[in-house]
Design a binder for these strands. Structure first.
Lengths: 343, 343
DNA sequence: GTGAAAGCGCTAACAT
DNA sequence: ATGTTAGCGCTTTCAC
């Protein structure tokens, strides 16, 4: 904090008016009928002296800081989620707000400290984000201050939340395959993410699977198989894919629960001498950078990170902040990994 | 901002003492000889009422906000750089500071607005980050306030900056290959990033190439070739690699200027029926997630993002903030993509 | 040992 | 049309 900033008092002295008049002019308040001459002197003095308002002083008076806090569990684990923060930033900036950003690393003590730190600094609102959509609730008594949940849901239903429409995405994945003519050979790689470490699976897994099952049922098609596995590394997708290659009915298409699994599937299919999409079609979720880097480029249903971030902030700053779940559509990125099944 | 927070005055009233005494007790000032009894009453009242200090009021008085600003050009373009922010966050939190985070998207008007916004909110210091190491200078007159440059250099030499030691990394890449026995077949993919769009190349390119050349020269070895190309997509690495496959002397090893190029190289080598590392060794820079996902896993020299972020903040918050360039070592991640050349 | 009072930079009634 | 005055919640000097 530079010690010697120019204050309104300095400007007033320079312009030969009172501090009040300066305040009125500089905050651009209408109806206070200031003489055009005085206003010019003030504006000139402010300019000349390089006056900048002290926003901490201002907000002490107005009880509004034009800042919001965004705390997430971890942004580094799924890197492309940086887009989410970008979206939030963009929306905040449009409304002249600045963003405190921090991560808890899933440590409740850190979370508490961060939340308090932001609240003590009088943020106008808080966004509580999680990088994997799941149930979660803000620490402490979040009563009293404005909060929106980003990419996560709470049990109590007392908060507004913004999440991707995973269910619709699951349906969409199936629809892409059906359109291409696939019916009996559709396998899922990843499933609910039922694993030793996470026997209950992950939220996105449940929703995507529900969507997948709803869409197949609606078309009178039966899923040929679901291999449950960890979604975190291509390696798991590799193994899962190998395990289903001899299955009956013979696989004609793979729905991979994310791009990393799809990457692993690509490696497994290549090792098995299979061509994508001639021998097998692949569709995936997330649309990380990987999807466009793979050869053939991977058709993937995108996590709308940017939009999620934007919406959370604009909701927080809007005036109807009612508890409600806002589901953001997941757009399809059509590329080259789907074709008609060989017959 | 919740309108009805408990203030020190409330606590004082509740405890039957003056606001002054409350301030002394709550800020834990020694030597102010308060009776143990009064102190207990105050602490009790604060606890009971759920008192929390209003840090904006406090900092108006103390001229210290315990906040710092971090503005970067773009974090989304190189996603794994989220680690940098994480490192910064970690160091800030350790010293009880909160972080304003924002991005300019390379728009000078936005940059100016963000910088002013943070300064007007009386941040204790600013970090000016760029996601690709390059020459850059903070907008406006940054005189007066504390600043450190993160992952970028300035022309003027008036700021402290923290950057990766790209030169040493270049040397290291060569050394890894020499150790494995390579000599005359070492090709570089990427080079200085001399392209139509960026005829001057990129800073990391120049530094890595200087290191590569220094290390080969020191060993009396001549580089077999350098293919200049764009570093942004695997596709470019693919094409560059194909173009050098027939070269003379025959390539035995590839130094790829980043992991994306290496990914492209992998695809090209596979298409050419070549095995890594039996036929060709590959070493790369950055150590993004890709490096561990590839098969065989890619040996890469890591960008120390986390450490860069940490160091920038602890430098900013330290008391010797002299203009100086702090070069952070880039650690080698040894994996499976290097072996001895076939003879 | 404790309290009164001033002031950080700003806004906003209320007076002129 | 402009100035006076009283805070916002906190720290800090000085007096009792």
């Amino acid at each position: 904090m530079p010690s010697s900033r120019v204050t309104q008092a300095d400007v007033a002295r320079h312009a030969g008016v009172s501090r009040t008049t300066v305040s009125f002019v500089l905050s651009g308040r209408e109806g206070m009928r200031i003489s055009g001459e005085a206003r010019q002197r003030i504006l000139g003095a402010a300019q000349e002296l390089g006056y900048r308002p002290n926003l901490t002083a201002q907000s002490l008076r107005t009880r509004k800081t034009y800042t919001i806090g965004l705390v997430s569990d971890s942004v580094a684990s799924t890197h492309y989620a940086g887009e989410m923060i970008r979206g939030a930033l963009e929306a905040a900036l449009e409304k002249d707000h600045l963003l405190y950003f921090a991560e808890t690393g899933d440590d409740p003590a850190v979370e508490e400290k961060l939340l308090q730190g932001m609240l003590d600094r009088q943020v106008d609102g808080m966004i509580h984000a999680a990088m994997s959509t799941r149930r979660s609730r803000p620490a402490g008594q979040s009563g009293g201050h404005r909060t929106v949940l980003l990419n996560c849901l709470d049990e109590s239903g007392e908060f507004a939340s913004v999440v991707p429409d995973e269910f619709a995405a699951g349906e969409q994945a199936v629809r892409l395959l059906l359109e291409a003519g696939h019916r009996d050979g559709i396998h899922v790689v990843g499933g609910h993410h039922f694993t030793r470490g996470k026997p209950e699976g992950v939220h996105a897994g449940h929703e995507r699977m529900r969507g997948i099952e709803a869409a197949t049922a609606a078309a009178g098609v039966e899923l040929a198989g679901v291999v449950e596995c960890d979604w975190s590394e291509p390696e798991h997708g590799y193994r899962a894919t190998r395990s289903l290659l001899g299955a009956d009915p013979a696989p004609t298409a793979l729905i991979c629960c994310n791009d990393r699994l799809a990457f692993g599937a690509y490696q497994a299919l290549r090792d098995a001498g299979l061509d994508i999409p001639a021998d097998l079609s692949v569709v995936s979720f997330d649309d990380s950078e990987l999807a466009s880097w793979l050869r053939p480029a991977l058709t993937s249903i995108a996590l709308p990170h940017h939009e999620l971030g934007r919406r959370a902030v604009s909701l927080l700053l809007s005036d109807d902040l009612r508890p409600a779940v806002h589901r953001i559509p997941m757009p399809v990125r059509r590329r080259e990994s789907i074709s008609s099944p060989r017959r």
